[in-house]
Write a protein that binds this DNA or RNA. Structure first.
Length: 557
DNA sequence: AAAAAAT
């Protein structure tokens, strides 16, 4: 096994034995020197050896197999010589595009790469197949369809590649993949690539590979993708509000949000669209046309956000994605690595934030164990953070308008208006600011006030009714549940939708706070009163956990 | 329990 720790940076693609046309081809695409996986895999594949290649996401695995296999293709033979299998349709399209771009300068004969996948009309594929493409990149289902009807001839196949190999050898795929492997000619080369390789599947690879070169690129500071990972611990029903807060504060170009189910992606996408985001869902229930259009729109910047199932977890290479939000924690540990790897492509930096509910703690530690690193916890952005971020983007817009749109036309009108309403310029500007903020208030930070005077214990001790539900029998005999009645009204400046926080000690309720946060549609999250001593904050947050923060939906007084 | 992959 070749364990590469760091590779010689002075190695060039030409040094690896690639023909000149391909060296020029990659140079035209802006690749200067091979990445570690490329440096190790290209020579082995050129020699015709089987390869098991493992390297982090975003480090050029596609080129690591595409370049050497292209080098060995007979361009004047119009029959499939290289076959790549991928777990999703989009990946098949993407890998086919990569092959085409590398081979642009390959001349002599009629070179073609063909993606074969479900959801696309048979007509196009049959016509293209009859022209005898040298490279076929396929998803298993449709490929087998063509194999059964004799529309694809694999007799001249030299090499087969399993992209995302661990996924291709999993339950759902293994039968199809085995069928394809067995249909390939004796002596064909076999290569498997993936960023992840669970132990039980690694064992399985050995039954297919023939004396493989096992290449494993260890993550080092220089080749490890610079992805800043973190998680937030919260309750399920706070997730949507948490997400909108994160999206407001995190500066991003393109982002991908991962949800657990197909239904959740559509639902969440609609909710975000209603909040003004340029967003679309992506899942396997959408038509293939829609799926492709959505990715295209993300690439071209017509949308900035997609909400996806794990259909988009692997391989998807969209350079502008700089933020990955795991709205739901992935159920399988490998998926985490792949989801997060949608950012930080080809040496770029990225961020990944995951929402975790307390009952998912175990999953989080499982992920940390396999990833071999801690995913630090962070707090949610506070109202103050949101306020700062909104003011900042408002300021940027202001500067832009002054620089690019020349607002001097309005200056005379400003003078006139000021004279008419007869207020200082600051007041006028403040009023204009208030009008300009629309549904994203610029003043949002929570303002708390002490309302201890109106807090009275509710008559009698109440058992928490939730713990009395059958099947959830908890011994509550030693726990005293206390309720407090908080009457606050107009005289305290309290309004509907305001939030109550309380500090409780052994003697009972010590202080209650009433506060308001002006975030649109965001009332379920409570910000801690500013300037409170740290230990009091802890008590408050503890109370929040045990007794839901009360929300005054009706105001008396 | 989810999603993916042929129709």
């Amino acid at each position: 096994m070749t364990e590469v720790i760091s590779s010689d940076v002075s190695v060039t693609f030409a040094d690896l034995g690639l023909p000149e046309s391909l060296v020029k081809g990659v140079a035209n695409l802006g690749y200067e020197s091979p990445s570690p996986i490329q440096a190790a895999a290209i020579p082995a594949l050129l020699q015709g050896r089987d390869v098991l290649g493992q390297a982090q996401t975003g480090t050029g695995k596609t080129a690591a197999f595409a370049l050497p296999l292209l080098a060995r293709i007979n361009v004047s033979l119009n029959a499939p010589q290289v076959l790549v299998l991928t777990p999703t349709r989009e990946l098949a399209i993407q890998v086919a595009e990569a092959f085409t771009s590398y081979a642009r300068l390959v001349t002599g004969g009629h070179f073609q790469v063909l993606p074969i996948y479900g959801g696309q009309s048979y007509g196009i594929q049959l016509k293209a197949l009859s022209r005898g493409p040298q490279v076929v990149v396929a998803t298993p289902g449709r490929l087998m369809d063509h194999m059964k009807s004799g529309k694809i001839n694999l007799s001249r196949l030299q090499a087969l590649v399993l992209d995302e190999a661990d996924e291709m050898l999993r339950m759902g795929f293994i039968d199809d993949v085995t069928t394809v492997i067995e249909a390939c000619p004796e002596g064909r080369q076999l290569a498997m690539f993936s960023a992840t390789m669970p132990r039980e599947i690694a064992r399985l690879t050995q039954t297919y590979l023939n004396k493989p070169e096992h290449i494993k690129i260890q993550a080092t500071a220089s080749n490890l993708a610079q992805i800043e990972q973190s998680h937030v611990m919260l309750k399920q029903h706070h997730k949507l509000d948490a997400l909108t807060r994160l999206l407001e504060v995190e500066d991003f170009d393109g982002a991908i949000i991962f949800a657990r189910t197909k239904a959740a992606t559509t639902e969440l996408s609609e909710k975000l669209a209603a909040r003004g985001y340029a967003v679309a869902p992506l899942n396997g229930d959408l038509s293939q046309q829609q799926r492709e259009a959505t990715i295209d729109r993300l690439k071209k910047g017509r949308i900035d956000l997609i909400v996806a199932t794990d259909v988009a977890a692997r391989g998807l290479d969209v350079k502008r994605i700089d933020l990955v939000l795991n709205y739901d924690i992935p159920l399988d540990v490998e998926a985490y690595t792949h989801r997060v790897g949608r950012t930080g492509r080809a040496g770029r930096t990225g961020r990944a934030v995951m929402l975790v509910t307390p009952r998912e703690r175990g999953l989080l530690s499982a992920i940390e164990r396999t990833a071999g690193e801690k995913i630090p916890r962070r707090e949610l952005p506070s109202g103050k953070d949101i306020e700062q971020s909104r003011v900042q983007s408002f300021r940027e817009e202001l500067v832009k308008v002054i620089a690019e749109e020349d607002p001097s036309d309005f200056e005379a009108l400003v003078t006139e208006l000021q004279a008419q309403v007869d207020v200082p310029m600051e007041t006028l500007a403040a009023a204009l600011l208030r009008m300009a903020q629309k549904d994203r208030p610029l003043k949002v930070a929570a303002h708390y006030q002490d309302i201890v005077a109106d807090v009275r214990p509710e008559r009698g001790d109440k058992r928490n009714p939730r713990d009395r539900k059958p099947g959830k029998r908890v011994d509550t005999s030693n726990i005293r549940f206390e309720s407090y009645r908080i009457e606050a009204g107009r005289k305290h400046g309290v309004r509907a939708g305001d939030i109550v926080g309380a500090i409780v000690n052994e003697a009972g309720l010590e202080k209650a706070y009433i506060g308001r946060i002006n975030l649109q549609d965001d009332h379920s999250l409570v910000d801690l009163p500013e300037g409170m001593p740290k230990e009091m904050q802890q008590q408050l947050s503890k109370v929040r956990v045990r007794q839901q923060p009360m929300r005054l939906s009706r105001v008396t007084g």
